[in-house]
């Protein structure tokens, strides 16, 4: 079943077409990797899917519903969350507050409930506490929960950002270069984590340069080059595709 679909997506910046008429789809429960040389338009496609940019042309559908032009926050509430290429944590807030922020799309922050305890705010707080503890334990961050995000080592910051994204139990998780700057051991742990998240029912789309990771966990690989889709298929097929080899080797 198609959970997310983009048809003929185009994004122009001035004269440059960062993404050019790309057809894209994501099936329920799969891990899809988006690869391509630098500047191929991968992150731009992410930004289109998460509403940071509105496509110049083309449409985006979630569960067959047209969501083109939706704002980032409403896309998050629909169950599509993401991480960023350059980690964007709330660096001066604690680990647990960062994860709490991730829960915003589920529980909001109503004005009245913030000043006095209301039945709904009590219920929301209980739910938030449960999710928070679950995420902290799941990612092994429990002992660091009071630490400021900026004081975490790089690998744990990446992990925390994933924690913030999975806190609201999203349907689709978009990871932008999650293994960037990680050592082989951390990358292995990350692969395990991504697998496990998929087994928990989250559909995953990731941008990654680490080919070992991509080939190891992807159900499907899509290749972009100069803003155009040049291949889409099983990892082994894509690896053999002459156009892909050409794009990577020049």
């Amino acid at each position: 079943m198609r959970i997310l679909k983009g048809s003929k997506l185009t994004m122009k910046f001035g004269g440059l077409k960062a993404v050019n008429s790309v057809d894209f789809h994501l099936d329920n429960g799969e891990i899809l990797s988006l690869i391509g040389p630098n500047g191929a338009g991968k992150t731009t496609l992410f930004n289109l899917l998460t509403g940071i940019y509105t496509p110049t042309e083309g449409n985006i559908y979630m569960d067959e519903k047209d969501i083109t032009g939706s704002k980032p926050y409403s896309i998050a509430s629909m169950g599509i969350t993401r991480t960023f290429q350059n980690i964007r944590l709330f660096s001066d807030m604690s680990v647990e507050d960062n994860i709490m922020m991730g829960l915003h799309s589920r529980i909001g922050a109503p004005f009245l409930g913030s000043i006095i305890p209301t039945p709904s705010s009590i219920k929301a707080n209980r739910f938030a506490k449960e999710r928070l503890d679950w995420v902290l334990n799941y990612l092994g961050l429990y002992s660091l929960r009071k630490e400021k995000a900026k004081n975490l080592p790089y690998g744990l910051q990446r992990r925390l950002e994933i924690g913030r994204a999975i806190a609201p139990e999203p349907e689709v998780l978009l990871l932008d270069e999650p293994a960037a700057g990680m050592n082989p051991q951390e990358t292995n742990e990350l692969m395990g984590l991504i697998h496990d998240l998929r087994n928990k029912g989250i559909t995953i789309l990731l941008i990654e340069h680490d080919m070992k990771l991509v080939m190891g966990i992807s159900d499907r690989v899509m290749v972009l080059n100069y803003g155009e889709k040049i291949a889409d298929g099983k990892p082994e097929e894509v690896k053999q595709n002459p156009e892909v080899i050409k794009a990577y080797l020049g």
Partner: peptide
């Protein structure tokens, strides 16, 4: 000191990241 305060603080720190967590900044 409530969640609402933290949301406002988060917006001040990084509006794009806040929106990505579902905050209508």
């Amino acid at each position: 000191s409530s969640r609402l305060g933290k949301v406002m603080r988060a917006i001040g720190q990084d509006e794009i990241a806040s929106e990505a967590t579902g905050v209508n900044s």
